[in-house]
């Protein structure tokens, strides 16, 4: 009965599922790099930093007396989100590791500081009345999507994956063995910045589309599940993106028919896909 009502409400959920699937696939693909580079908190940090951009855009709109619902391009929250995330990505692309503070700790610091800044800015009296709109931009809404968001997500999906299709070899090389790439004359700093900018673009747009938690989860869980199951790089990418499609679509379906929170249900479904890999790992260890 419930499934009948789900299928008959096709127009209600079509755009949301399309956005969730596109965002999930994009995040899972990039997540393979993030997991293998051992910097899983980079997506959470970039998401927070892009939120600072949104908060600053609203604050500036308030300062200049511009209506936040229809801002000029120079005060567009989406543009600020992208700009701040790009700036954060460039900083993270440098080797932040130090004898005293690891690179992962530096990323964690970025996350904490950005999260605190968002709270401070959004609680200022100047922007408090825009809270509802800001929340949608900051944390996304996986339940329903506007047509504009479908196009935004689709455009991001195409641009980022085209960049990776073209430069996959270079991105893999500088991620796997930076020093060897440098000895062969690669401008590794630029390639690393390029790779991190693709993370920034994907995170800032998909966070606005489906929310910070699903984005973080899609960047970590499907790649981790795929790495447990597959032993070739191409198959890890294929499996991770396949898991993302399943988790996004089936997670949405379950959330619809059981009235569960959409983003969190997608994350739980994605997490369940780790079970076969964990069983395989346990069996291999027993041998």
């Amino acid at each position: 009965m419930e499934s009948v009502s789900f299928w008959s409400s096709y127009l209600l959920w079509r755009d949301a599922v399309v956005v969730a699937v596109l965002a999930g696939v994009l995040c899972a693909y990039l997540g393979v790099f993030i997991v293998l580079k051992r910097m899983v908190f980079v997506s959470a940090a970039l998401s927070s930093i892009s939120s600072v951009g949104v908060a600053v855009a609203f604050l500036l709109a308030s300062v200049f007396g511009v209506a936040p619902h229809d801002p000029p391009l120079l005060l567009s929250p989406r543009l600020y989100a992208l700009g701040f995330a790009a700036l954060g990505a460039i900083i993270f692309s440098f080797n932040l590791g130090h004898r005293r503070i690891s690179g992962e700790s530096a990323i964690g610091l970025g996350y904490i500081i950005a999260s605190a800044l968002v709270i401070v800015v959004l609680n200022s009296p100047r922007v408090a009345q825009e809270a509802h709109e800001i929340n949608d931009l900051l944390y996304g809404n996986a339940v329903a999507q506007s047509t504009a968001m479908v196009w935004w997500t689709a455009a991001t999906f195409v641009v980022v994956l085209m960049a990776h299709a073209l430069f996959r070899k270079e991105f893999v090389f500088v991620s796997f063995d930076l020093e060897m790439a440098r000895t062969l004359g690669y401008r590794t700093r630029l390639w690393n910045i390029g790779l991190f900018l693709t993370f920034a673009i994907a995170v800032s747009v998909t966070t606005q589309a489906i929310g910070a938690l699903p984005v973080f989860a899609f960047m970590v869980v499907p790649p981790a599940a795929a790495l447990l199951m597959a032993s070739r790089l191409w198959s890890v990418f294929a499996l991770a993106t396949g898991i993302a499609v399943f988790a996004a679509a089936f997670g949405y379906y379950l959330s619809f028919v059981w009235s569960l929170p959409t983003g969190a249900t997608m994350v739980v479904v994605a997490a369940a896909t780790m079970i076969p890999g964990l069983v395989r790992l346990a069996l291999l260890r027993r041998k």
Partner: peptide
């Protein structure tokens, strides 16, 4: 490099790693 410096968690085969030695000859993209 010292082999401990090379990350063995990447699911790459011997041939895929050896091919990297030719990337600068192959060209970008």
């Amino acid at each position: 490099p010292q082999r401990e410096q090379t990350d063995s968690t990447w699911p790459l085969t011997g041939l895929e790693i050896v091919l990297m030695g030719r990337y600068h000859r192959i060209g970008v993209g």
